[in-house]
Simulated scan of single mutants.
Amino acid sequence: MVGGTEGTGSGARPGDAGGTEHLTVERCGATLVLTLNRPEAKNALSLPMLVGLYDGWAAADEDDEIRSIVLTGAGGTFCAGMDLKALAGKGMAGERYRDRLRADPDLHWKAMLRHHRPRKPVIAAVEGHCVAGGTEILQGTDIRIAGESATFGLYEVRRGLFPIGGSTVRLARQIPRTHALEMLLTGRPYPAPEAARIGLIGHVVPDGSALAKALEIAEQINACGPLAVEAVKASVYETAGMTESDGLAAELARGWPIFDTDDAKEGARAFAEKRPPVYRRT
């Protein structure tokens, strides 16, 4: 772990969510907004960005007052993928973060949501380019909104590379296989309306309004019982690879305890009393 204070965020640790020079963090009520902030490079992934993402996911997991997460990009772009100049050996920004990687060699995969799933819902607000590593991170999010001019795609094969961020496993589980294979094997761009048609994203909105729509959905989630929300999300993912009978058994095991919580009782009382519920995560 970094212990120094050189530069913005250089002392960030899991749970701090202080951000870095390439990742900004903002609280918006009960929503944590993480913004990829390297617009001059179309928010290409950098070491400071990955460290900031990792810390942001960790902070959201640890803070019970955070009920949802929004991931977006600065400068009208979501993420153009890995910094290919760095991959070619020309160096990656943020060398002072290298000891974070040495302390946790899996940090970059957790940051990209390949080896970590936040327990809070993650909403992607996409404008502009969301390609290569951007589309791979997208597959780790739960709800996805895009501006009408946004572009998606997995370009790796066009560069002789492999989309190793999880796409050969996840994509065909999220959209029909024929569409997944076409996206993976052609490396072509997908405009937002087509991405919505094949099921990669859920909403197409006017350019510049993806973040507002994401925050609107986040507020709807935040108004619900947090224990119920987190249990529902966990159940959807943990049962995805099960048989129907095993999945239904796992759903009961996770769902029945929710009915015994104080929050469940509060939800019923609030409905009867015609008032908004006040959930306390108990």
Rank of each mutant, 00 (worst) to 15 (best):
L211P: 00
S46E: 02
L71M: 07
A196N: 10
F78E: 02
R170E: 14
A125E: 06
C28W: 10
R119V: 12
R173L: 14
T72C: 13
K274W: 09
A218G: 08
D262C: 07
R117A: 12
C130A: 14
V122F: 03
A264T: 10
C79R: 01
I175V: 15
S10N: 08
L215A: 07
V25Y: 00
A132I: 02
Y190K: 08
L138H: 03
E65D: 14
I164D: 13
A59D: 02
N222A: 15
L50Y: 05
T72H: 02
R159W: 08
A86H: 11
P276L: 14
D106C: 04
P163A: 15
A58M: 07
G4S: 13
A214D: 03
T24E: 06
D262G: 15
A150Q: 04
G9N: 02
S68G: 11
P176Y: 11
S149K: 14
T72R: 03
A240S: 13
L107N: 04
T72P: 01
I217Q: 05
A59C: 05
F271H: 14
V126Q: 03
V131K: 01
L181H: 08
I137Y: 01
P257A: 12
E251K: 11
E62G: 05
L87I: 13
A212T: 13
A132D: 10
H116T: 06
G241C: 03
P118K: 06
V33Q: 06
Y237N: 08
T24F: 02
A249L: 12
G81P: 01
Y237C: 07
G128L: 07
K274L: 14
P176M: 12
C130H: 04
A30W: 03
A58L: 01
H129G: 04
A125P: 00
G160P: 02
D55I: 02
E6T: 10
K274C: 10
E62H: 02
C79A: 12
R197L: 10
R159H: 11
A228G: 13
N222K: 09
G208Q: 08
L71F: 04
A111Y: 05
I137T: 10
P176I: 13
Y97Q: 08
L211N: 00
L87Y: 09
R117C: 05
N222C: 15
D55L: 01
A231V: 13
R119N: 10
T20M: 04
A218N: 03
A88D: 14
S68Y: 06
G9I: 00
E219L: 08
G19I: 03
I164T: 14
L181T: 09
G7A: 05
G73I: 07
Y237I: 08
Q174S: 13
G153A: 07
N222T: 10
Y279A: 04
G241E: 12
H129I: 13
